[in-house]
Design a protein around this nucleic acid. Structure first.
Lengths: 236, 236
DNA sequence: ACATGTATGATTGTATACAATCATGCATAA
DNA sequence: TTATGCATGATTGTATACAATCATACATGT
């Protein structure tokens, strides 16, 4: 349903600002607004039933997140992600998710551990049933749990950024069922290493998980969708 | 007409909006606004000579960067950097600076290589003379060159963020002369590995450089300045 | 025909007006 | 005394008015 439930709840409760921000972002991530499309403040404001002010504030945040690019006095344009950007992000994520898994091993709470196990159990169920939507949601949640378990505000923030950045691509990747199964098996390995308090192994598995996710993506349409015309040697 | 627009572009990279954002950001990082201090839109607007609108937009961005925390209908409060945050950032930087050095080895240009060598020569000169100011500047520049040489927009952006985040601490660290000497020696090792096209060694040295920088900082007043009351075991 | 200047409309940038909300302090009653 | 309710002021949230800027198209002169 909603990928960023925590953030959303906090913002939705009180102000338009959060709603506007998340609505526009979702529309970009879902591909409603396409690469290089110009976003006009009044048009989007009317669509969401608000004035320009909240829209502008949302634009500033979206720019900082890298989803749009604002040219002063001209307009806001949806930022394209090149295949090289994706490759670079996954390389960074590989290292940081590894670090995250290591720290999570040291700091995870009982409840987090239980939610993680439940997450994997559910994922395996939905993979067997072929429920793509739920799998996407559960995959996101698995990593969020990991981020929170690391007990590091900074690391969580950084990884969440990366995660959201590659969201649009991840969606179609996970809809491939063979990858879902392998993905779940990798999640399970990470979870078991954490449960066994084996930080070294958790780090290794988390890193490998990112590398595998990237390789699968690179081989299944990444180039076709986000063809930047460069850097086809996709070793990671 | 034309003269003005050209001049403007030269003067401020990102127009008024950017100036307001960067000014407030700098004031937070420099410690002008202290932890938990409430930032009022009108007060800051008056200080910068602008209305609330640009200030509000800047606040939204700063919140996303994690420098302030906005409570709806209440106010904006400066988020403190704890010693744990610094530790976490250095752990992340260690990995990513390593990756950066690796990629720099593969992509560095002639000019960048030359500027890096020149940077190290100058650093050694100023260290011998005890010029703290120049050393800070040169150290920042060394890492910037490295970021650009990596030829990765995403990595450069991430590392620049981290770099700025810990800037205020780095300043006093580098004013210690014994560390300056060691720091230069580590820069030299990184540079030589890159020059020898030894990516493995470059990565290793860059990682170690961050670990050393952090340890030195932790032993020279980090706790005193950024005492958050938690996490005193500063292993990295 | 081509280049240049200029009018025009559209869009963003900023300031301000007004509404909603919150914190504070005081008055009042148990 | 203590708790409750309300008035008041301060601050943020949103909408709108106005200024600055940019792109387009058309007119004019060569």
């Amino acid at each position: 349903m909603n990928e960023y439930s925590v953030k959303k709840e906090v913002n939705d409760k009180y102000s338009l600002r959060g709603r506007v921000f998340h609505r526009i972002r979702e529309d970009i991530l879902n591909g409603k607004y396409r690469e290089n499309e110009e976003l006009r403040e009044v048009a989007i404001g009317e669509e969401l039933g608000v004035s320009r002010t909240p829209v502008r504030e949302a634009f500033r945040q979206l720019e900082l997140e890298g989803l749009i690019h604002i040219v002063p006095n001209k307009g806001a344009y949806v930022t394209g992600i090149t295949s090289k950007d994706v490759r670079d992000i996954y390389a960074m994520r590989s290292l940081l998710e590894g670090l995250c898994a290591r720290w999570a091993t040291e700091h995870i709470t009982e409840e987090q551990m239980e939610e993680m196990e439940e997450n994997i159990y559910l994922s395996e169920f939905h993979a067997a049933k072929g429920h793509a939507e739920q799998l996407t949601e559960l995959d996101s949640r698995f990593h969020e749990i990991l981020y929170e378990a690391s007990d590091s505000k900074m690391l969580k923030h950084t990884l969440s950024d990366f995660h959201e950045y590659v969201m649009r691509i991840r969606k179609q990747t996970l809809s491939d069922n063979t990858r879902s199964v392998q993905c779940n098996s990798e999640h399970r390995k990470i979870m078991e290493a954490i449960k066994a308090k084996d930080a070294e192994e958790a780090e290794k598995q988390a890193r490998q998980h990112m590398i595998n996710a990237y390789h699968h993506m690179a081989e299944h349409g990444l180039g076709a969708i986000y063809d930047s015309g460069r850097e086809k040697n996709l070793k990671l």
